[in-house]
């Protein structure tokens, strides 16, 4: 299929920056209990090796500032800094689900990188929308992103 055009707001050579809003929904495996969900404004820069993800509340205040490099995975919230063993653990804590960050950068750049258990829909990337779903392992997880124009 045709490769969607790149939407990142700066060209690749500079540090690409993506801004918009994301929603994560985790189906609960117990029948009655509620699905878990997370929604926030975001700004994402860098790549899976070294980058930053800042999360904002709907009213425009900063909820959390995540940063990672080869050695560190940090989350800054309300004046305290927490360190995590891995980027995956950091992301799980921040958004309530294990989002594959390397694949996320690729998806945002229009490259439908495949990740075990995940399938991404980049068909609406030109309209600034990316959706990805993890079908296994349970629980089913859905990530929806809307990029700022």
């Amino acid at each position: 299929c045709a490769v969607p055009t790149r939407v990142s707001t700066t060209n690749q050579s500079e540090r690409s920056i993506w801004r918009g809003r994301l929603a994560v929904r985790v189906e609960s495996d117990q029948a009655q209990s509620q699905p878990q969900a997370f929604a926030a404004g975001f700004e994402l820069t860098g790549n899976a090796q070294a980058g930053e993800l800042t999360l904002y509340t709907p009213v425009g205040t900063t909820a959390a500032a995540l940063s990672w490099s080869a050695q560190t995975a940090l989350m800054r919230t309300n004046g305290d800094i927490r360190s995590f063993a891995s980027l995956d653990a950091l992301i799980q804590q921040a958004v309530g689900a294990e989002i594959p960050v390397a694949a996320l950068f690729a998806w945002l750049a229009g490259d439908n990188m495949s990740v075990a258990g995940w399938s991404a829909d980049l068909s609406q990337l030109a309209n600034g929308r990316v959706t990805a779903r993890r079908t296994e392992p349970a629980p089913v997880t859905e990530l929806r992103l809307v990029l700022e124009k």
Binding site: R21, L22, A23, R25, A39, P58, V59, R129, V146
Partner: peptide, 19 residues
């Protein structure tokens, strides 16, 4: 963002999500 007296609703139209 709607506070109806009991519940604070947050509805993002593009994401089609209500918390």
């Amino acid at each position: 963002i709607v506070a109806d007296g009991q519940t604070l609703w947050l509805y993002d139209v593009d994401l089609n999500q209500v918390t």
